[in-house]
């Protein structure tokens, strides 16, 4: 027992102060993209040409789809004028798929759950995670939320073993055809009222697998989705921030 206590003492306190204090992110972290259209070179489509998922559709109000974005920086690296760049902003979630489609990367303020749902789930949210073609990067950074660093439990949020015990699903992966039935059954097994969170580019839009005949291009084609979290994978802070904003002021 003594050796455990000594080790515990040496390991120290590791839980981050977020959301009370802003977190420290690595300086090269690629968060929400910003597209200053005024800086664009006339008729330049270099960014759209290299975008692996067609997230960049060029000029216009639907020019940049954060739901498809892999945050890979391929666009920023070919941008001749520095109009496209990635910021450190990790607040990325939206309540509707449409809200992730922007002209310049700016997202509108995300709304929380309705007052009624917040009353039911705001202080205790149990989620069942379903990986439906996820590559284990989203899954890994969801698991991280359970470690002492993020300590998800302190917010009353917990991942549970059975959909019967859950208030909602958190889905990763583009939803493979081979997982469609299992996902539907899991959704049906969650008692109402229930919420669904689509986590990561794959679950939001299909991500790198968009259009593959083996996938259904995201969760929304199978079950109704209440929260979309972009990223490939989203940083754990992005996921945590999205869930906390969904649950509303504490």
């Amino acid at each position: 027992m003594l050796k455990e206590l000594i080790a515990r003492f040496r390991q120290g306190h590791r839980t981050i102060a977020f959301p009370v204090a802003e977190p420290q992110l690595p300086d090269r972290f690629r968060g929400r993209p910003s597209w200053e259209r005024a800086k664009c070179v006339a008729d330049c489509t270099e960014c759209a040409k290299v975008c692996p998922t067609g997230a960049i559709q060029g000029a216009g109000p639907a020019g940049l789809d954060l739901g498809r974005c892999l945050f890979c920086e391929d666009c920023a690296r070919v941008c001749p004028s520095g109009a496209l760049r990635f910021t450190q902003d990790f607040h990325l979630a939206a309540r509707s798929r449409q809200d992730l489609i922007t002209s310049d990367g700016t997202l509108k303020e995300m709304e929380g759950l309705s007052a009624q749902l917040r009353g039911l789930l705001g202080r205790s949210l149990k989620l069942r995670q379903v990986s439906a073609g996820g590559c284990n990067a989203c899954e890994a950074d969801i698991n991280v939320l359970g470690t002492v660093v993020f300590d998800l439990g302190r917010f009353g949020v917990q991942f549970v073993a059975s959909p019967r015990h859950a208030d909602g699903l958190l889905i990763t992966g583009p939803v493979t055809k081979n997982m469609e039935l299992a996902l539907r059954k899991t959704y049906d097994a969650v008692p109402a009222p229930k919420i669904v969170i689509a986590c990561g580019a794959c679950a939001v839009s299909g991500g790198p697998y968009l259009g593959s005949p083996q996938v259904l291009d995201g969760a929304a084609g199978v079950v109704p989705v209440d929260l979309f979290i972009p990223g490939c994978p989203p940083h754990p802070l992005t996921i945590l921030d999205a869930i906390l904003r969904l649950l509303g002021p504490r």
């Binding site: 992966g173 081979n178 997982m179 083996q214 490939c232």
Partner: peptide, 24 residues
Amino acid sequence: YQRRGAQALIQGGPDRRTVHVMET
């Protein structure tokens, strides 16, 4: 259950998507 058809997406490449399929 996780079959996404990755190898089929790579055939005919490399293209702008290939490296991202590799990474995932």
